[in-house]
Design a protein around this nucleic acid. Structure first.
Length: 666
RNA sequence: GCCGGCUUAGCUCAGUUGGUAGAGCACCUGAUUUGUAAUCAGGGGGCCACGGGUUCGAAUCCUGUAGCCGGCACCA
């Protein structure tokens, strides 16, 4: 005689259910409406299939489409399975690998059969069609527990070499599961899944693109085709998402950079930016802002050589570990007479600096340093060159020539945590002044590195401690540790900002480094009269001016805050009679430090308004004969419909106040 | 670097099965003196990314290269 299971529900009630019953049975027992609405279950906190029997007494919370996060996750995961099934149905012999859900959908990595090329955009409509068929067939998704050997045999028999390889590495003891789609297709998967493919809305997904992706994320492995889709609960959500993407496209800094005449890139200098006058105003404002910040924080600014001898790079370790990314140039005028080969010894080469750190150590090393000199904080707007993989270049976000707001802090061990914490606070203040929210990560020791494990233990722990001291190691700040992602000389704290379409980019960093001071033999004289090794903190907040400006443009959709706007005001006339007054207004604004232009063209005011609005000029000062006689201006502010009529003096005072940088505003 | 796609006027884009290149905006000229998101008319503009091939003939087909776009890998 089987016992009854006690199933506690969120409202505190307990239901007794026969052994072998499922969350669905509970839902059905409560009411037909709930049975229909329930799509999955949280059993003792774990998200599970609605049809998976209880294993004992349990706490149950039924999941419905109202639980949007869970519902989306389940749907996207199911879409991924349906995608894989569809591809195999269309092209037998296709190998499948993995297909997770993503922030806005799903993907699946597949390997096309040897008989055909990798899948491309042209294949997507057919796959979508097949996916809809599978969804409409309403195939039950059934969980089954398999042994590891069963899995290996199954994949080997099917010629699924990737799956077989993975199954080989699965742990022996663990409960391994597969999910059947109907009774003719299965994938190994932890689950959970919806009850059947028919729970998906066939109109709520769209395949977006294909891309190459390496098996297990390793360049040495085969390249699979990754098919990306976006997936939602219904068509309305899908359309809203597609609209969001379109809107995000309008914020793209590459597009706005061209439209607003800020900068351009061209083939002959790919990866290096041509800054136009308007774009460079933003740069100069940021530079001035950062100089104020570092002056106040006790840094001193320096400037170091662009090119140094390869011997120097050998000593710093860059020649050995970073040379692939360095622009190397011969330290010799080629002999044009016989064009003899240039020798390849490091001694005969020079290299453009990919980083500023060695040069800052060289400044530190000039003269004897006392413990009283520490911490010594050297700052540089350092222009670096890195020969990045061409596929990595991306507008302003990833370039080959860039300028870092780079500083190196030389300090004693006992000063380190304070320095890191102070830096965290400075970075926090600065990001907030720009209106950014950031996430913070700790990148741990990489495979290719200098220094002992003990040294890395210390370095990693002190960064952890400093972040904890600053209270930033929380979910709110997206705190996460990234194994293997550190630099070859030090672990890194990383600050990340997000672009228009949700990609995150590292901007700020601080790294505690004991390797470079050692390699370049930096020392100071301590209280004991002996030479000691300083610790070196590498740090940046903008990361690079290029990337930071790219993110600013996308964040503000080109509508820069007044203090950063390249043109802060345009004085536009209605009739030529007011030209004289318009010039006078512009002169006064200019004298007050406002970046102003005049528009005296013989065009209708509607035309001028439209044009300057498109150009995202924050303030349009319209003047006609009325304003000229009264000594006023009509101010139209970007994004506002109402205009303000102000006496000229008041208008100037207002603009001047609004154009103050946030760190200078009282 | 790898996979897929793209490259036509300053910009955004058309261009049928291969037959000698088009629009809108911008620009120039003229007219228009206008009160808050496009005044009208006329004009000039192209090595169809670059190289090689197929063809009587190539923007169009094939092939190589470069750059760009989306990912991957790598990274600020």
């Amino acid at each position: 005689m089987s016992e009854l299971l006690k199933i506690s529900l969120p409202d505190g009630s307990v239901r007794e259910m026969p052994e072998g019953s499922t969350p669905y049975d509970v839902a059905a027992a409560i009411g037909p409406g709930l049975a229909k609405a329930a799509i999955a279950a949280r059993v003792d906190g774990e998200l599970r299939d609605i049809n998976r029997p209880f294993e004992g007494d349990a706490e149950l919370a039924l999941v419905t489409a109202r639980d949007e996060a869970e519902a989306l996750e389940l749907a996207r995961h199911d879409f991924a399975h349906v995608l894989a099934e569809a591809v195999q149905a269309l092209w037998p012999g296709t190998q499948i690998t993995f297909g997770p859900s993503t922030d806005d959908g799903f993907y699946y990595d597949v390997m096309a059969p040897a008989s055909r090329e990798p899948f491309g955009m042209d294949d997507l409509p057919a796959i979508e069609e097949k996916m809809r068929e599978i969804i409409k067939a309403d195939k039950p998704l059934r969980r089954e527990v398999w042994s590891r050997q069963q899995l290996i045999d199954k994949w080997a028999a099917d010629g699924e070499t990737f799956k077989a390889e993975w199954a080989q590495e699965l742990p022996e003891g663990e409960e391994l599961t597969v999910y059947w789609s109907g009774d003719d297709w299965l994938d190994m998967c932890r689950g959970p899944h919806l009850a059947s493919t028919g729970k998906l809305d066939p109109q709520a997904f769209k395949l977006m693109r294909t891309a190459g992706a390496y098996w297990r994320g390793d360049q040495k492995n085969a390249q699979l085709t990754r098919i990306y889709g976006t997936g939602w609960l219904n068509k309305k959500q899908l359309n809203a998402h597609l609209e969001r993407l379109e809107e995000a496209g309008k914020r793209d800094h590459r597009k706005l950079g061209q439209e607003m005449d800020l900068f351009h890139l061209q083939q002959e200098a790919h990866g290096s930016v041509f800054w136009h006058p308007k774009g460079y105003i933003i740069w100069r404002e940021l530079e001035a802002y950062m100089r104020r910040a570092i002056d106040n924080a006790g840094y001193r600014e320096v400037k170091t050589p662009q090119v140094m001898d390869a011997k120097q790079w050998e000593q710093s370790g860059h020649w050995g570990k970073y040379r692939e990314n360095m622009f190397v140039i011969p330290d010799e005028v080629p002999n044009t007479e016989d064009e003899g080969p240039l020798v390849s010894e490091a001694a005969d080469w020079m290299a453009l600096k990919p980083m500023n750190c060695p040069a800052h150590v060289l400044i530190f090393k000039q003269g004897l340093k006392s413990y009283r000199d520490l911490p010594m904080r050297l700052y540089e707007n350092g222009c670096c060159h890195r020969n990045e993989p061409h596929g990595a270049l991306h507008g302003l976000m990833r370039v080959r020539q860039f300028t870092q707001d780079d500083a190196h802090i030389f300090c004693r061990e006992d000063q380190l945590v304070d320095e890191v914490r102070n830096f965290c606070q400075l970075a926090d203040r600065i990001y907030k002044e720009f209106g950014f929210t950031y996430s913070i990560k700790l990148a741990l020791r990489p495979e290719m590195r200098f220094g002992s494990d003990e040294m890395w233990d210390i370095a990693e722990n002190e960064l952890r401690d400093a972040v904890a001291a600053a209270g930033l190691n929380t979910e709110e700040y997206g705190w996460e540790e990234l194994p293997g992602e550190g630099a070859f000389y030090a672990p890194k704290l990383e600050w990340h900002l997000t672009d228009a379409i949700g990609r995150t980019w590292q901007v700020g960093t601080i790294q505690s480094d004991r390797v470079l001071p050692e390699r370049l033999d930096a020392t100071y004289i301590a209280e004991d009269g002996e030479r000691h090794r300083p610790v070196m903190l590498h740090r940046a907040i903008f990361g690079s001016y290029e990337r930071f400006i790219g993110i600013l443009i996308e964040h503000f959709a080109g509508k820069m805050p007044l203090w950063l706007a390249p043109v802060q005001a345009v004085v536009a006339t209605i009739v030529s009679d007011a030209d004289g007054y318009a010039k006078e207004v512009a002169e006064k604004l200019k004298a007050a430090g406002i970046r102003v232009e005049t528009d005296l063209r013989n065009e209708k005011i509607n035309y001028k308004v439209r044009e300057h609005s498109h150009a995202k000029v924050p303030h349009l000062l319209v003047v006609g004969m009325r304003e000229a006689e009264e000594g006023t201006v009509a101010i139209r502010t970007l994004g506002e419909k109402q205009q303000q009529f102000l006496p000229l003096d008041e208008a100037i005072a207002m603009l001047k106040a609004n154009a103050t940088a946030p760190d200078l505003a009282s």
